[in-house]
Design a protein around this nucleic acid. Structure first.
Lengths: 64, 64
DNA sequence: CCGCCTATATTTAGATT
DNA sequence: GAATCTAAATATAGGCG
């Protein structure tokens, strides 16, 4: 999506790869939280940035 | 998105909850795979359907 | 329950500040 | 190099078969 259609292959430019990671990580974390709430499910998402920094996302559905 | 804007809260209708889960699960798995390839990262996604069935998604980035 | 349709909501690539 | 903008690509809600 966005200005240009990206083919799904490794982004060779380091800066681009990090920027894309940052943007898409935000999106996928949002989707995961939405899914857990909408469908009342457990979900776990773990990912590592291009530099190795981990992000953990746990869904936030009803706990009762 | 779609025909109607959904507010992010638990879908009370069971059938609708399962249909939405199925559709969104497909989308988020696709996003996870794209992210792992584009940014060459490790990613793990685990989720449980409203009926308890688990789905595991591992990213598929370069292994070398 | 899956696949297709399509109007509309959402994400995001690249540019700009 | 983060924050914001915006045109354009994608995801998806509801409906149908």
């Amino acid at each position: 999506m966005g200005r240009v259609k990206l083919s799904i292959k490794r982004l060779e430019n380091t800066s681009r790869r990090q920027i894309t990671y940052s943007k898409r990580r935000t999106g996928i974390v949002k989707k995961a939280k939405e899914l857990s709430i909408l469908c009342d499910i457990d979900i776990l998402l773990i990912m590592f940035s291009p530099t190795g920094k981990p992000t953990l996302c746990l869904g936030e559905h009803r706990h009762d």
